[in-house]
Structures are given as C-alpha cells and as structure tokens.
C-alpha cells in the first residue's frame, strides 16, 4: 500500500481545497489559515536543524523577529518598497544567526539548546531596549502591505494567495534541499556521529549551513508576518513563539516536512478551539505539550503512520 502522499489525486484534491478556501470559508478562518501558512516557514526551517543535524533550537522565534523587524524598519523608516526588503530580511537573519550561533551549533546537542536560549533572550532584550532603532516597546506600526504593481494585498483573502505561494515555495525548496548532496550529508551525519566525525572539518561547515538555512526560512517567515499583521512588537518574538515553533516541528515527527505542516496547522488553530476553556486555556495548552511528549515522543503523526502501514514508516 503506497503512502497517501504518493497518490496524484491526493495532491490534486489538496490543491483544489487550498485554492477554494478563501472563497468558501469565512474571513476569520482565512485569517487563521494565513497564520498557519506563515508559520510553516520558520517551522520547516527549524526542521532542517532538528531533523537533519539533531540540533534543537529555542531561538527560532527571535530569528523570525529579526526578519520581521528588518523589513518593518526598512519600509517604515527608510521608505523601501516591501518587495525590495525580502532579500535584506533573509540576509540579515542569516548573518545574525550565524554570528551568534555559528560557534554554538558545533557543540553537542544539549549545549546548543542552552546557547539558543541565550540567543533568544539577547535578541528579545535588544529589540525591547534599543529604542532608537526598534522603537522598543512601542513596536513598529503602520507597516505597508505588500503591493504587486497597483494592487496591494490588504485583506486576509488577498494576502492568502501570497502566503500560499510562499508556503508552497518553501515546501518545494525544502524538499530540494533535503534531496541534495548537502541534505544527504546532514542526514548521514545525524544518523551516525562517528562516521561523520571522520570528516570533521566538513561537519562543522555543514552544521553552520544548516543553521543558515533554518535562519533563512525564519527570516522569510518574519517578512510575511510583518506585512500581514502590519504591527510588530518585541513580545511577539519572545521565548513563547520559539517554544511553539519547536513543538510544531517536533509534533509532526522527525524529518517529515508534511508532518511539520500538519502539526503547525493543528497547533496554531489550537488557540482557537481551546477558546471555550476561557481562563483555563493556557493550562490546556500546557497539557497538550506535556501529554503529547509523554505519549507520542516521535510526534503525533506516528499514530497515523502506524495505521497507514509499515512500508510508509519504513521509508523514512
């Protein structure tokens, strides 16, 4: 029995459903869908690190913020056109990630996590306190919408197609990276440290490359976020989103980009379906993290996969 995602009709149906969504669903659902699509970028980026080098990062929220702040400041303070700031945002995020984390990513896994907590807090504190540059706690307001010629993407429905295309490109690019020589090398490395360590110099460089890739995806996600929400604040990029992104990348199961995307959708909409819990909403959220890790340490999708049959599980 072939895995579901190898059937053409599955893809066709998914695509049709995604394209029809803004026309059929209420605006509010489209709005949530936009957040999900945007978040798939930093999460997939994190997947490069987690799945392919065995490194876990708790700084992805900060990197996401660096991308968002770069484009927000370039457009509001220097008057750049939003589209022109995509590349600078991505580059800025990469530069910051590599300069702060480049040395740390060579450390053993747990030490790297510790270092990323430091990076997360440092970035957040600087966003909060370097008021001359970032506006500090006032946040950045009135960020322009992305425009395509005369047409500007203001409403959730309009933005949806941009987010969908971006998430699609991110998905296929990620697939390419994984299939590339670098991807294979990184996977071999995370599978067998001993063998990989015999090519030590290249290992270090490959890990830094994985970090840069994950930062690039976070930066692009931040770019989208800033132009969708159009107001950003340092608290949007604290430890909380970092934890959320990490959980999204883990809940899907290691090394499965599709899994990560499904997990992103499930967890991002969680804030909505947990609404009836009112004051107790955060308790429910904490329980989901805790129980999820206790009972599905390899990701919630392992449950689905086990049902789908052994060959699918064996493939990865």
């Amino acid at each position: 029995m072939a895995a579901l995602h190898q059937r053409w009709w599955f893809w066709a149906a998914t695509l049709a459903a995604l394209l029809a969504l803004p026309a059929l669903a209420p605006q509010y659902v489209v709005h949530i869908a936009n957040f999900i699509l945007i978040y798939t970028l930093p999460v997939v980026g994190l997947g490069f690190l987690t799945g392919f080098t065995g490194r876990v990062s708790l700084a992805q929220g900060a990197l996401f913020g660096v991308g968002a702040y770069t484009t927000a400041l370039l457009t509001t303070k220097l008057g750049w056109a939003p589209v022109a700031t995509l590349v600078p945002s991505v580059l800025m995020t990469i530069v910051l990630a590599v300069s702060l984390g480049g040395a740390a990513v060579r450390l053993a896994g747990l030490y790297f996590v510790m270092a990323t907590i430091g990076i997360q807090q440092i970035v957040w504190l600087v966003l909060m306190n370097w008021i001359e540059l970032t506006n500090g706690p006032q946040g950045v307001r009135s960020i322009p919408a992305v425009g395509l010629g005369e047409y500007s993407l203001e409403t959730p429905q309009q933005f949806y197609f941009l987010a969908l295309v971006a998430a699609g490109i991110s998905y296929f690019l990620a697939k390419r990276v994984i299939g590339s020589r670098l991807g294979l090398f990184l996977r071999a490395l995370s599978d067998d440290q001993l063998a990989a360590s015999s090519v030590a110099v290249e290992v270090g460089r490959a890990k830094v490359t994985a970090l840069a890739l994950s930062a690039a995806w976070a930066g692009a996600g931040g770019f989208l976020y800033a132009h969708y929400v159009r107001f950003i604040h340092p608290d949007m990029f604290g430890l909380e989103p970092s934890v959320l992104f990490l959980v999204m990348s883990m809940f899907g199961g290691y090394r499965s980009i599709e899994g990560m995307i499904v997990a992103t959708a499930l967890l991002e909409s969680a804030t909505e379906y947990l609404r009836p819990f009112g004051e107790f909403r955060m308790i429910a959220y904490g329980m989901i993290l805790l129980l999820g890790m206790m009972f599905f340490p390899m990701g919630i999708l392992t449950l689905v996969r086990r049902r789908a049959g052994a060959p699918a599980a064996g493939k990865d």
Partner: peptide, 21 residues
C-alpha cells in the same frame, strides 16, 4: 520523557506552563 533531550525539554516546558497557569 526520558526518550531524548528534546522530548524532555518540550515536556518540561509544558509542565511549567501547566504549573504557572
């Protein structure tokens, strides 16, 4: 949660959120 350190980290963060809230 002893599966690996990532699982332990996220699990314990979840526990922290439950305790705090």
């Amino acid at each position: 949660l002893y599966h690996n350190h990532e699982v332990f980290i996220v699990g314990s963060i979840g526990l922290g959120i439950v305790l705090m809230n």
